[in-house]
Amino acid sequence: MKNVDKRNKLEEEIFSYKVSKDDKIFIFWEGKQVKILKGKESKKFLSKISTAGTIESQLIMAKVTGNFKRGNEKINKGR
């Protein structure tokens, strides 16, 4: 797992998630909602994340969102 995060972005805890009452998972990147999981997908996510550490949790959320692994994510700077 050491070679996965060469720029140490996952240590910054840029991803977070929230579970709703109806078991939907809302995944956020830098405070912006980027993905919603429901059904089997949300149960699978919860089982993985429940035993994961901080950096591993960040990696799981990055993989689930899909497009956040290329390093080309842009940060909006006051536009």
Rank of each mutant, 00 (worst) to 15 (best):
K69W: 12
E73I: 15
V4R: 04
N72S: 08
N3R: 05
S42G: 04
E30D: 14
Y17A: 01
K74N: 08
F68H: 12
Q33G: 10
D22Q: 05
A52M: 06
E12G: 01
A52S: 15
S42W: 00
D22R: 06
N8Y: 13
Q33T: 05
S16A: 04
F28L: 08
K6N: 01
K43N: 11
I36C: 07
F26W: 02
E73L: 15
D23S: 10
L10K: 04
E56M: 06
K21N: 08
L46M: 14
F15E: 00
K32R: 11
D23A: 06
K77Y: 08
E13Q: 12
S20V: 05
E12A: 11
L10A: 01
K38V: 07
K63V: 10
K40H: 04
K32V: 10
S16M: 06
G39I: 03
I55D: 07
K48H: 14
F68V: 00
N76S: 13
S57C: 05
I14F: 04
T54D: 13
I49H: 12
L59A: 13
S42M: 10
K21I: 05
I27A: 04
E12V: 01
K38D: 09
F15C: 00
T65A: 10
E30N: 09
F26C: 02
K43E: 08
N67M: 13
T54L: 14
D23F: 13
Q33F: 02
N8L: 06
I14N: 07
L37Y: 00
I75Q: 12
L59D: 09
S50D: 14
E11Y: 12
K24L: 14
K77G: 03
I75E: 15
K32P: 02
R70V: 04
R7W: 02
E41I: 11
I27W: 03
N3W: 08
G39R: 03
K40Q: 11
E41H: 13
K40N: 14
K18N: 10
A62F: 03
K35C: 15
T51I: 05
K69I: 04
D5H: 01
K74M: 13
R7T: 06
R70N: 15
T54S: 13
E30P: 00
Q58Y: 11
N67D: 11
S47C: 05
E11A: 02
G66N: 08
R79V: 08
I36K: 09
E73V: 13
K38P: 00
K44H: 10
G78K: 12
K44S: 11
W29D: 05
G78F: 14
N8C: 00
K43T: 01
K18P: 00
G78D: 07
N67H: 03
K40A: 13
Q58N: 09
E73F: 11
N67F: 14
I14P: 04
T51C: 09
A62P: 01
Q58M: 06
R79D: 06
K48C: 12
N3E: 08
S16Q: 09
V4M: 05
I75M: 10
L37Q: 01
K9N: 08
M61C: 03
G53Y: 03
G78M: 12
I36G: 00
K69Y: 06
G53T: 14
D22W: 01
N8E: 12
